[in-house]
Nucleic acid binder design. Structure first.
Length: 202
DNA sequence: AACTTAATCAACCGCAGCTAT
DNA sequence: GATAGCTGCGGTTGATTAAGT
């Protein structure tokens, strides 16, 4: 069980919240040398004050070298639409068909972008009574994936070119941890992390 | 410039299923 | 077969950033 930061035995202390760069490096370094899996013991063996769950999530969603970050392409959007229509909210299953994408990313994409679009189309199409059946039954099955894609991509400004060059915001680690003026220095990329890790292991 | 609202995404939580004992 | 521990999944939340007023 997780111990809430109550005073007392520091051995049971469990860190929560955003990961620091040091933690990331420790995790990358450990997995590079020992492999992943058996997350609870991995967390302990690596000396991380994190739950195995947290380590697994961090690795799978962010630190893995093959994780693809940045904008979801039009093809990927279409695949997501189609697979979601087929399987519903089976994010991990859908993610398996999108190499480098994580279930969390797809889930977020769906919830923030697609559902927003769906809501919008609900309000607009429900004015003209025709759309009401769709609206009543949506999510997923009724709505043709292609319809959704078409409408979605034409009604939103998101055309797949935002968030290029995703980098690692220091502020998400600890907003107060760094007070550097140059914005460029507040970021490090996954490439940076991995090169640091490689240096470290030499 | 200050404030508010909306959008985004990383991370946590709870649960279900699987495996080992 | 029962139980415990672990893993993976999906839902949700909270922090941060961006956009609007």
């Amino acid at each position: 069980m997780e111990k809430i930061g109550s005073s007392g035995s520091e051995e049971a202390e469990v860190r929560k919240g955003p990961w620091t760069m040091e933690e990331d490096l420790i995790l990358i370094n450990y997995i590079t040398h020992h492999g992943d899996g058996v997350w609870n013991s991995l967390a302990k063996a690596a000396g991380l004050k994190r739950t195995g769950k947290s380590c697994r999530l961090r690795w799978l969603n962010y630190l893995r070298p093959d994780v693809r970050r940045g904008n979801i392409t039009a093809e990927e959007q279409l695949i997501i639409m189609e697979l979601h229509a087929k399987w519903g909210n089976r994010w991990s299953k859908i993610a398996k068909h999108l190499p480098g994408r994580t279930d969390n990313e797809i889930k977020n994409f769906w919830r923030t972008r697609v559902q927003k679009y769906i809501k919008q189309s609900e309000t607009t199409s429900s004015v003209g009574s025709q759309g009401s059946e769709i609206n009543d039954q949506y999510p997923s099955h009724v709505f043709s994936a292609r319809d959704a894609m078409e409408a979605y991509s034409t009604t939103t400004s998101y055309q797949g070119d935002m968030e290029l060059n995703h980098s690692y915001p220091m502020s998400s680690v600890s907003p107060m941890s760094l007070t550097v003026d140059q914005p460029g220095e507040n970021y490090w990329t996954m490439d940076d992390l991995w090169s640091m890790q490689l240096l470290d292991s030499n």
